[in-house]
């Protein structure tokens, strides 16, 4: 399975000026309903790493990734992203931080009725004055960035199509283009392939790997499938019940490692194939 855009398009984004590292110290997340999603997690992720976060649903991996851009507020501990403290960032400062962090979601999260181009331009919001957004007058530079982002995931031809008319794989590419349009220093992906069929899933994972390898951007991906985690990550972090139970190289993580992380034996649905 080769993707058209793998051979056709070239990456035209300049490599991230300086990709960001993440430093977590004793981070806990407790939701208002009392559920503790993360317990005293301490992690160091270096700039330019490609990390897979693995765990069953409810293990806290989604909360982990969402604390890194402040979508989930942390209850205690410290979190530095790119050398800046996220736990104290509010308002404008927080939005600027988020502007540097691209995020890709399991459900793509595109505005269904908006055009592909307008969805990608959402990635420019943090760099656009509010009045321009209100009037829908995006700068030519921003549009150029959006076109290039679409081109690099191979769906520039769909720029004017309505997002909802695209297939699942194409929609996830639009979401990746939206993240790229942020010219991010760090990309977070929350179960990016869980809604996709196997060939498309591999295509999207290859895109993420290229973001890491070709652009040098730090990439953090939540996965629940062990073969994808092994193939596409260089480092594997295993979460169980809100605690880090494994942290080591991805390629050599054995089935036994996954059984520790999952707390049960490996089943066939844990593998994409």
């Amino acid at each position: 399975m080769t993707d058209l855009h793998d051979s056709a398009a070239a990456w035209v984004h300049p490599p991230a000026a300086a990709p960001w590292s993440i430093r977590m110290r004793d981070v806990s997340v407790r939701y208002p309903n009392g559920v503790v999603a993360l317990k005293n997690v301490s992690l160091d992720i270096e700039a330019g790493e490609m990390v897979s976060v693995v765990g069953l649903s409810g293990s806290g991996k989604s909360s982990l990734i969402r604390t890194i851009n402040g979508l989930v507020p942390i209850s205690s501990g410290t979190l530095e992203v790119g050398g800046r403290h996220l736990e104290t960032a509010r308002g404008r400062e927080l939005r600027q931080l988020r502007g540097e962090i691209g995020m890709i979601f399991q459900g793509f999260n595109l505005a269904r009725r908006a055009s592909v181009l307008n969805n990608v331009l959402v990635g420019r919001l943090a760099h656009t004055p509010t009045w321009r957004t209100l009037l829908g007058l995006y700068r030519a530079d921003d549009k150029q960035i959006a076109y290039e982002a679409l081109n690099s995931v191979g769906i520039l031809a769909k720029a004017y199509d309505r997002a909802s008319t695209l297939s699942g794989g194409q929609q996830q590419r639009v979401a990746i283009a939206r993240a790229l349009a942020q010219q991010p220093k760090l990309v977070l992906a929350d179960e990016p392939v869980a809604s996709l069929d196997p060939p498309t899933a591999h295509g999207v994972m290859r895109d993420l790997r290229r973001i890491n390898q070709d652009l040098g951007i730090t990439v953090l991906t939540n996965l629940h499938l062990l073969d994808l985690a092994r193939t596409y990550g260089t480092r594997l972090i295993g979460l169980r019940a809100g605690e880090v139970v494994y942290d080591g190289p991805a390629a050599t993580a054995s089935d036994a490692v996954f059984e520790t992380i999952y707390g049960r034996s490996i089943q066939h649905e844990d593998v994409l194939g």
Partner: peptide
């Protein structure tokens, strides 16, 4: 979800409303 994506990209609520919720 789409609104959350706008928040994750660093948009203000007003920008998110205009760019995503309105359509």
């Amino acid at each position: 979800g789409p609104l959350e994506a706008g928040r994750a990209a660093g948009g203000t609520q007003l920008q998110i409303n205009r760019a995503i919720a309105l359509t």
